[in-house]
Design a protein around this nucleic acid. Structure first.
Lengths: 148, 148
DNA sequence: TATTGTTATACTCTATAACTATA
DNA sequence: TATAGTTATAGAGTATAACAATA
C-alpha cells in the first residue's frame, strides 16, 4: 500500500457518479416516504413548506414565500389557489401595497397545520432513528449545509 | 435546562421540514453544478450513469440498466435512442434472447466516457473539498446509505 | 421604470396502459 | 403465460415571456 503523494487531489471514484447519485437516491426515498405518509391528506412537500412558512410568519407576500422556497412566482399561483380553494389559506389584499396579497391561514388551516406537524415530526424521528440517532442527524444536516 | 426523560422520542424540529427539505436543496445544487459542468457536452445526469454502466459492464440489456438506475423501461427507450443517434452507444441484438438488445459503447462512446469521467472526477473532488475532505465525504455517503 | 400577481406556454421527468415479437 | 422493447399519453415540476395594476 504505497501512498505516493498526490497533487492536492483526493481519492477519486473509478466509475460512477457518487455524491450526486447517492444524494438523489436518498432524497427520492425520503420524498416517497413523505408522499406516502401524506397521501391521504393530499399534501405535497412544497405545500407543506408553504403552510409551515405561513404559519410561522403570517402576512408574507406570495413572492416572498415563493422566493424563499425556490418556487417561481408564476408556478406559485395555482398552488396557493388550490390551498385557498381547500379553505386552508386566505389571500388578503395588503394595505401597504395594493399589488400584493398577504397570506394567512384560516382557522381550519391552523388546525390542519397542527395535524400535519405532528405527523411530520413522527416522520422526522423515524428518519433520525434510521440515521442512528440525533447526533447522526445533526451530522448529516451539517454536511448537507456545506454543499450549499 | 431540565432534561426530562422523553418517551423514546428525539429532539424534534418545531416547525419546518428538515431532513427532506435540506436533502432536496443540496441535491438540487449538486445537480445544477453537474448540469452546468456538462452543458457543453449535452450530457444529463441520467445519461452519465447509463454510459458509465455500459462502460463497466458491456452487453447488458436495456431493462437491466434501466431497472438498476430506477428508470422505467418505457422512458429508457428515447434516451438510449438519443445516445445511439449521437453514435455513442450501439444496440446489438442479443443472441441468447432475440427480444433483447445488448448495449455496447462505440469507439467514439468509449473516448467520450473517458472524457466525461475525467471531468466528473474533478466535480467529485470539488464537492469533497466543499465537504471538508474525503473523510467527511465518506461520512456523508455512509449516512445517506442509512436512509436507503 | 420596477414590481406583484397573473396567464399562457413549453420542456423535462415520471408513470401507466397496451401493443409486438419473442421466450 | 411471461418478458423485452416499444409507442402513446398523461401528470407533475419547472422555466420564460408578457400583460394589467400598482409602486
Amino acid at each position: 500500500m504505497t501512498k505516493t503523494a498526490k497533487p492536492a487531489n483526493f481519492n477519486l471514484p473509478e466509475r460512477e457518479t457518487i455524491i450526486g447519485y447517492k444524494l438523489r437516491r436518498a432524497q427520492l426515498l425520503v420524498f416517497q416516504d413523505f408522499l406516502h405518509t401524506f397521501a391521504r391528506m393530499k399534501l405535497r412537500p412544497a405545500e407543506f413548506s408553504v403552510l409551515a412558512m405561513i404559519a410561522r410568519t403570517p402576512g408574507l407576500k406570495q413572492t416572498e414565500i415563493a422566493e424563499a422556497l425556490g418556487i417561481k412566482r408564476a408556478n406559485f399561483v395555482p398552488m396557493i389557489h388550490a390551498l385557498e380553494e381547500r379553505a386552508l389559506v386566505e389571500r388578503r389584499p395588503s394595505r401597504q401595497d395594493r399589488r400584493a396579497n398577504a397570506l394567512h391561514l384560516t382557522a381550519e388551516g391552523t388546525k390542519f397545520v397542527t395535524k400535519i406537524r405532528r405527523r411530520h415530526d413522527r416522520l422526522e424521528s423515524d428518519l433520525t432513528e434510521k440515521l442512528g440517532g440525533p447526533t447522526n442527524r445533526d451530522l448529516l444536516l451539517s454536511l448537507l449545509r456545506k454543499l450549499a
